[in-house]
Every structure is written in C-alpha cells, then in structure tokens.
Design a binder for these strands. Structure first.
Lengths: 366, 366
DNA sequence: TTGTACGCGTTATCAT
DNA sequence: ATGATAACGCGTACAA
C-alpha cells in the first residue's frame, strides 16, 4: 500500500514538468537537483517484490528465485535504476573510492609523462575493479580540505604520488586509511605501503655508462633535493664515481623541468667547463639542457656524453637521441593500485615495500 | 536516556577489541574498516548537548548559544570529528563532488601540458569552494562503470575535457547532471555548457603569419580529425589560404603527439617537398616535426617557416624557438569550474557557450 | 526463498 | 536556543 502510493508518486513526478522543461523561457532552465532517480523502492514495486529482494538481485545474492530475479532485472532496466552511492556507502561503511593525491604543482605534475604513465597504470588496474579514483590536489593546510575529505570517509584508501619528503600532512592519514606511496615516502614511522623504483640503482647504471665510455669529469643535473628520488639518484651517481676512483663534479638542481634543465646546463658549463659527462636525472631536464650544450659548441656524444632518466618521449625527440634509464612507470601505478585493492579486500600478506627495477636504454647521447 | 545509552554503547564498542588489534601477530595487520570515526552523537555527548545543536554549530547556524557552541567546538577538536560525507550527501542529495571526465588515452592526455593547465585551472577555482574533483577515465562501454557512477549520485556535475566528436556515451549524462565541455562538444542536441577557445580564429592567426612572411606552399600537420579542435584548426588554415589566394597544401594527421608529429613531418616532406610554410596544430607535434625538418636539411625559418599551437614549454625548448598560438588554458579550466559551480548554486544566467580567444606568440620559427 | 524492521550519520522540521 | 524525531536510500539480520 504505502509502497504503491510512493511509486506512483515517483512516476507521476517524472512524467511531470521536470524533463519537459528545457524549453522554458529563461527563469529557470532546469532543476538540476538530482533528478528524482528511481530507488530500490520503485524497482520493488514495479517488479512486485520487496526492497530486500531487489537488493539481493543487485548485489548478486544466490538465494533468490530466478523468476523474481528476472522480474527485478527487467524493472531495473526499464526504470534505469542505479544504486545510490551515498546510501550504499553509509550502510556499508565503504565508499569504493580511492584518492589519488598529487602535489600542488599541477601543471608540472601532469605535464610529466612519467606521472601520466603511473596514472595510466593505476587506472588500468582500477578499471577491473569497481573502485573509482578521486583526484586530490595536495594543499598544505594542516587542516585543509584534503585532510577533511580523506577523514570524512569519502575514500577507502589513498595513493600518493611524488611526495616531497618535507610534507608531513599525510602522516595522520596513514592512521585511518591505508596509504600507498609511489616513490619512497621519506616519512618516518608512517604505517603505509611503498612502491618505488630503485633510483639509486638506476643512477648507478646511468653513471656507470658514462664511466665505461671513458668520461673523466662527470657532473649531474639533479631534481629538487626535497624529493627523495632526486636524493637517491645523486647518491647513485656519487657512489659510482667513487667506486671508479673519479672525483665527482658538481651537482646542479634542474628542478625536474625543461627550463630548469636549461638553466642548470648553463650553470654547469660556467662552473665546470671541463665536464665531459653528465647524468641528467630526468629526460625532461635533459631536453632542456641539450640545446644549451649544443649552443655552446659541445658535440654530443663526442665532447660531452649525456645520460637521461625516465625514457620519456622527450628522450627520442632530443637533438641527439638520449641514452636514458627506463622506469617501469605504468607497472608502478598498476602495482600501487593492486596493493591497495588487496589491502582493502582484507588481504594481509602484502609486502610493505616493493622495489621495481630499471634498465638502461642505449641510444646515441652516451 | 535513549541518547545516553546509545553513546555509551558506542564508546563501549570503541574500547573493545576492534582497535586494540594491531599488535596481533600476523593474521590481520590492521582493521582498515573505517576506524570508528567519531559521529555527531559522540560529539554531542561530550559537549553535553544534542546532535541537533552540534549539527548547527558544524553548519554555522546563527541560532546557537555561544557557550554551547564553544563546548561543541572543543568536543569536535578533541575528538577529531569530521562529518561523514555519505550521510550528509544522502540527506542533502548533493555530493559536493564534480567529475572530471578525461579520454581513455591517459598517457597522452596527462602528458600534454595544455590539459595539465586546464586541470590546474579547474583546481584553482574548485579550491575556493568545498567541492572536490573526481577523476573518471572515460570507458566506452555504453553501460560502463563511468555512466553508472555518474548516474549514481556520486557527483553533482561533470566537466569533460578533450571529447571526441564520435563519442556519444555522454549524451545521456547531460539529462541528469549539468555538464560542461571543454572544447566544442560536437554533440548535437545535448543540453550542456561549452567553454572553448576559438580554434578557427587561432588557426587563422597562425596561418596568416605564414602568409605574411611570404610563404607560398603552406601545409598543415593536424590533430586527429575525430576531434573538433583539430577540424576547426584545419578550417582556419584552409580559409586563410583561400582568402590569400593560395592553394592549400596537404593536411597530414599528426595525432597531437610528438612521434605523430615526427611521422607527419616525414610524410609531408615526401609528399610535398616544395613546402615552405607549415602550420603545426600543436607544439608537441611541432617538437617532433622540427628535428625531422632539420635532419632533412631544411633551415628554419629560412627554408621552411613553422608555426605551432599551444605555447607549451615545448615551444621554447625546440631547436628553433617556436612561433605559436597561446591558448588561455588555465583560464579555460577556471571558467569551466566557475560555470559549473554557478549552475550548481542555482544561478540561471550563464551563457551556454563561452569562447576564449587566442593570441600569437612571436618567436623565431616563423 | 522472501519480507519486515532496524540502523548507517546527517539535516531539517517541528515542538518546547 | 535547544532537543526530539522523521526522513534520505540502502544492506542485512531475523523472522516467516
């Protein structure tokens, strides 16, 4: 009874004005207030069963008569029913969403194919689940929107990419939500998962290449030293030189950006003109540095050998195709998502740290 | 009474087993099931008021005694209370989230600074609101996760960027949610908002530059012809040539990508060696094409003049700094978000179409 | 197998 | 100014 009246009411409303409105002249174009979406109740009424049964069908419960199941399914499609996310999430205590936290500097972040690939990997894995991705641009406010959001039950887990070591605002998040960091977190005592590429090893590979090719005066153009990855690559570079008995040249911050790379290249040439080999810690920077080297009369690889990092498209479109270190970035994203999904599914055996390895891509610049 | 017992019950549960578990040896590391977050109820109990009063304080209602308000605020901070998003959304029928729909090809999309800037703009505007951004990678499944998500009340509105004209899966969304397209949608009869840059005009500007510089054989490397922006730029190019009494050279699809640009450049030189001016419809493609031109002995701008599009960082790090067309991409994102927010706020006067204009950035390539 | 009834955490409408 | 109380849409023990 009560059910019936409610449904007819719903149907009545729909047939009403609301979707015939667009032609109205000006005052209110449309009432976009969550157009009366059909509810379980409506489906139940149409199918002639109870809400509970509809719910069972929706959630694939085995214990439901095939006949009623069919009726329900039919009702669902004719009504175009979609479960209300909020309601479901309220009762189940799960949002089926995970947050992707990216650094403030959106333009640089998204402009970097390395990160683009990670996102592609994350999405690739998530696509096969029923989780969705929420994009959070990190704000540094200690009580900012981001934290409130993450704490408000809007997501079940968090993926953090490119996290500066100095940023501790995420520390508290790790206590209520599972957090997976891409790239070493650098955060001490935070209970989380980490998927990283072996930056030290990658830098060793790159630098060793320079050494093997006979370079004697080897410098590096690094990323911002506030990032662990940048630190690690510098360390790999330095240790390789030391093992080789070479004196490390200067370390110049190129900010992981094209213009930063160009700037760094100029500084490098000024400060250390005898340089004959340089490990540039990202292809993006290398693509900025390369023209500078050439401008200043260095022939590559004859006078100056250059090894990049990332194997991004930029590496191939450089003046001189760039020998570089390939990172398994897509795989990294996939792995991060996979871990999070496992953890959310209650799986317990996941390694806290996963290290993916790199490999040298040999081209012409070194 | 009822309230009291309920609260103590809650507290009891909390003191119970569930959060004392982490020390357990191995079987379950942690119960990440939305760690009993404090609720209104808990805050109310601690502050010695009713849920209603707490709710009023949280939502800044004026009608609450300063004294109780203080008590509530204190309770909130000591408990670390954050309103539950799902519950709030269930009753208010609003999610306070908007979806950013991006095309399938994640890597390319995010690798393009043009889109990165748009996202930056969107975020810039959203930051000043209490809306969050949800990232949806478009799947083409007609009944896919994306549609279900958008229909499930998880978001209040949608922003679509880089929409292929052939993709109609979003058509139905426009009927239940406000949708803002970035770049002309190309979808007929869809009730939505559009923010676009004047691609035709931008291409005219670019091509006119070539004409003014005395080029006689002008070709274009275009984006994928399934995208309206690519189509428009071709049209601007063609119309300019016709007004100038010049015969248009070939149109070669460079796919808006670096390698596509390189490929297109090779094809162009093969097919139309007399070319002395080319409008490349994105800087990314231009940065791929430029090395090819130079490789094949074309001096730029002497033998061949090149004008790009986007004014992306790539334009400056080209072998020859690229004359290009700047798009107001950040502003575009900001505008899209602004429109959506206005519409969601019930504002009615918003133009359905907003066209942002471009301007030529003169450098050396033409 | 199916239906009833309760609860998830908030907001909003009432009385008080 | 404040406190009960009824929704909001759904999942699920429990009863039938």
């Amino acid at each position: 009874m009560a059910t019936d009246s409610k449904v007819s009411q719903l149907t009545g409303e729909r047939g009403d004005g609301s979707n015939a409105a667009p032609a109205s002249t000006g005052s209110r174009e449309r009432a976009f207030t969550r157009q009366h979406a059909p509810t379980l109740e409506a489906v139940a009424a149409l199918a002639g069963v109870s809400r509970a049964t509809v719910s069972r069908v929706v959630n694939g419960s085995p214990k439901v008569h095939p006949e009623s199941a069919d009726a329900v399914r039919k009702a669902i499609t004719t009504l175009g029913y979609v479960p209300n996310r909020a309601a479901r999430s309220l009762v189940s205590q799960q949002s089926h969403a995970i947050a992707l936290v990216v650094p403030e500097d959106t333009t640089r972040f998204f402009g970097d194919v390395y990160f683009a690939s990670i996102i592609a990997g994350i999405n690739d894995r998530l696509e096969q689940s029923d989780y969705v991705l929420t994009l959070m641009i990190a704000d540094h406010a200690p009580q900012g929107k981001m934290l409130r959001y993450l704490a408000g039950g809007a997501v079940d887990g968090v993926v953090v990419v490119s996290h500066h070591t100095s940023d501790t605002s995420l520390t508290q998040v790790g206590q209520m939500l599972p957090v997976v960091f891409g790239g070493r977190s650098g955060l001490a005592g935070v209970d989380c998962w980490v998927v990283d590429v072996d930056n030290v090893d990658g830098a060793v590979t790159a630098t060793q290449r320079l050494v093997d090719r006979g370079c004697q005066n080897i410098a590096t153009i690094s990323g911002p030293l506030s990032m662990q990855s940048a630190l690690d690559r510098v360390e790999g570079w330095r240790s390789t030189l030391e093992s080789a008995g070479l004196t490390p040249g200067p370390v110049i911050d190129g900010d992981y950006s094209v213009v930063g790379g160009a700037r760094a290249a100029r500084a490098l040439l000024d400060e250390y003109p005898e340089v004959d080999g340089v490990f540039v810690a990202s292809d993006l920077m290398a693509s900025g540095a390369m023209p500078v080297f050439i401008d200043r009369g260095r022939r590559i690889p004859d006078d100056l050998k250059v090894v990049g990092y990332d194997d991004s498209p930029a590496a191939q479109s450089c003046e001189v195709p760039l020998t570089t270190v390939r990172q398994p970035s897509v795989e990294m994203g996939r792995e991060m998502a996979d871990i999070l999904l496992d953890v959310l599914a209650g799986q317990t055996g996941r390694q806290r740290t996963t290290v993916l390895s790199t490999r040298l891509v040999e081209r012409e610049s070194a």
